[in-house]
């Protein structure tokens, strides 16, 4: 994380869905330390961790015998319905976003990859900006179809029969939680998020996330997990201050 942290101060905390909380620290960046840049006035970097309380569901082993190629790609069973938790209960694949951020466009965004490897989506959650190019690749030597069913955007269903084939799509409207699935391999599911601003991140394996710089003000921040639900907080930030916020999703 970039920047030093000042003294913690209380913030407004709104517990949303579940008994969850997200850890979010807002801090004043050191001069020249941040890549995020100033939004307006003083900027605050945000980083945090999403955690799972309780025992993570282990899921059930997926029977991939219907497609020998898929079965041969894994030495051990792949679990369906498992919630992957990192050290300290860190919860990965959670979208953390500022709900109240203004829409901004950026024409110089790099492509985002949604791959299919070993008959699984990689990553399982991708977040893109409105208009950003999403590259959908099949790295498997077996047929996958990529069925994307948005509510706000235009859906599509691509047949990708060849290893290495790529298709590119751009989504035109902000939308959270677009389901992606393969109709041939029923265990293959992914989620696409589309946002119209840069103030978001998807948590890494340890549950950590990083948000770009934010100006001082009041923000509604949301953590969104595809099976555990949504948790929202309102955070008020003043100049020269920082804070720690803890969101924790309860294990089902």
């Amino acid at each position: 994380m970039v920047g030093s942290r000042g003294a913690a101060i209380p913030v407004v905390l709104v517990m949303a869905v579940l008994s969850s909380a997200v850890s979010l620290r807002l801090s004043v960046p050191e001069s020249g330390a941040a890549d995020f840049g100033m939004v307006s006035g003083r900027a605050f970097l945000a980083e945090g961790t999403v955690r799972l309380l309780g025992t993570a569901p282990a899921g059930e082993p997926i029977d991939m015998s219907a497609d020998p190629f898929c079965r041969e790609q894994h030495d051990s069973p792949v679990m369906r319905g498992a919630v992957e938790v990192g050290p300290g209960g860190g919860l990965s694949q959670v979208l953390v976003r500022v709900r109240t951020a203004p829409a901004t466009a950026d024409p110089n965004l790099s492509d985002v990859l949604l791959d299919q490897q070993g008959c699984l989506y990689s990553p399982g959650v991708v977040a893109v900006r409105v208009g950003q190019t999403l590259v959908i690749r099949n790295s498997d030597a077996t047929l996958h179809n990529v069925r994307v069913e948005p509510k706000e955007n235009r859906g599509f269903n691509l047949g990708q029969p060849l290893a290495g084939i790529e298709s590119k799509r751009q989504l035109d409207r902000p939308e959270i939680g677009i389901p992606v699935r393969c109709d041939i391999h029923g265990w293959m599911n992914a989620t696409i998020h589309v946002l119209d601003h840069p103030y978001f991140d998807v948590t890494r394996e340890d549950g950590a996330f990083t948000l770009p710089a934010l100006p001082a003000g009041e923000y509604e921040i949301e953590a969104w997990h595809h099976t555990l639900g949504v948790s929202t907080q309102v955070v008020t930030v003043a100049d020269g201050s920082s804070t720690d916020i803890i969101f924790e999703f309860a294990a089902p």
Binding site: N145, N157, L158, S167, D183
Partner: peptide, 19 residues
């Protein structure tokens, strides 16, 4: 272009980018 282009099943994907 996929099934919906002729009002058929949405399960039928489009292969126009593959073939």
């Amino acid at each position: 272009a996929g099934g919906p282009v002729r009002g058929f099943s949405e399960t039928m994907p489009a292969f126009g980018e593959a073939f």
